[in-house]
């Protein structure tokens, strides 16, 4: 590039910039008016913005703007408005008892809708999108409840969790019969086979099921009952229902008896508000709850 005297271009009538490359010169065309005015407008806008919104830092604070706008204040307002709208639709859920909700079809309908939404975000990762459960996580539609299937029992379980970090949590601990040496490996196998027969499954060939029955009576019946029908006060599952939370294979049962599963459910009372928990209880009860 060489410096070249500014000239007037003959065709366009425009001056050149004074740059010249091998005889090619650059026109000094001004920016379009509309563009320039938009640019000035944005500058003017920024001055207005400084006045209206929080903008400039000061020594120990900042300019708050004419209306004292805060982002966090706005989200608090929006949350309150959302809550108010929801409460308008769900008026009554807050004060009604679970029994009153169950008795009132309109309240039930609202609780089901609220509960379904909350279930989708909070419960489906373990219990599945339809409450069908999966290995290790109970099926809520089977009508079989470890800790009871009434509205109040479900509500209690959701609020305080199972073996969770909560003073009122539902807690019980099945011993690790094999790991802690309470039963010998062959005894574990015998009782596992007996448990299979409780659920109507075939035992293995050549295993003494009668011995397993005796071991069951001595070690398991205190919680699972003489007949293996379980005890919801201990969260001890009914072993006769053909619903197997950790599988019904002999190896699964041997693992369960050897190490004990003692599964955990978080306490939701700390995380969700009371209306949501009530709604969840109604929704979960609708999936397979009992009276």
């Amino acid at each position: 590039m060489s410096t070249d005297p500014v000239q007037v271009d003959r065709i366009s009538g425009q001056t050149t910039t004074g740059h010249e490359w091998d005889g090619i010169r650059e026109l000094n065309t001004p920016l379009p008016r509309w563009w320039l005015w938009l640019f000035y407008l944005t500058i003017a806008f920024s001055f207005a913005y400084w006045i209206v919104y929080p903008a400039w830092p000061l020594a120990s604070s900042y300019t708050a703007g004419l209306f004292g706008y805060t982002n966090r204040g706005r989200v608090a307002e929006e949350l309150a408005a959302g809550q108010a709208a929801r409460m308008q639709a769900a008026a009554g859920l807050e004060t009604a008892t679970l029994a009153q909700i169950a008795a009132d079809p309109k309240l039930t309908e609202i609780a089901l809708a609220e509960g379904k939404a909350a279930f989708g975000d909070n419960c489906t990762p373990c219990h599945g999108s339809g409450g069908q459960g999966q290995r290790g996580y109970p099926n809520l539609t089977a009508g079989r409840w470890l800790w009871g299937g009434t509205l109040d029992q479900i509500h209690g379980t959701i609020t305080h969790g199972i073996r969770a970090d909560d003073p009122d949590t539902r807690a019980s601990a099945m011993p690790s019969f094999g790991k802690d040496g309470i039963l010998k490996p062959e005894e574990v196998r015998e009782v596992a086979n007996y448990v299979r027969t409780l659920g109507g499954l075939e035992p293995e060939q050549g295993v003494d099921v009668a011995a397993g029955k005796k071991i069951f009576a001595d070690n398991c019946s205190a919680c699972h009952g003489e007949d293996g029908k379980g005890n919801i006060d201990m969260g001890a599952p009914n072993l006769t229902t053909k619903v197997w939370q950790y599988g019904s294979d002999i190896s699964d049962l041997i693992y369960t008896i050897t190490y004990a599963r003692n599964s955990v459910m978080p306490a939701w009372g700390k995380r969700l508000d009371p209306v949501t928990i009530k709604s969840l209880a109604v929704y979960v009860h609708s999936l397979g709850g009992g009276t």
Binding site: T124, P125, C126, Q134, Y137, V264, P266, R271
Partner: peptide, 20 residues
């Protein structure tokens, strides 16, 4: 934190699709 159980995290990290 606290939303899921430890066993869920173990299962989920090993095979996310087994639980979700």
């Amino acid at each position: 934190g606290g939303k899921y159980t430890d066993s869920w995290h173990v299962a989920h990290l090993i095979d996310p699709r087994s639980v979700v």
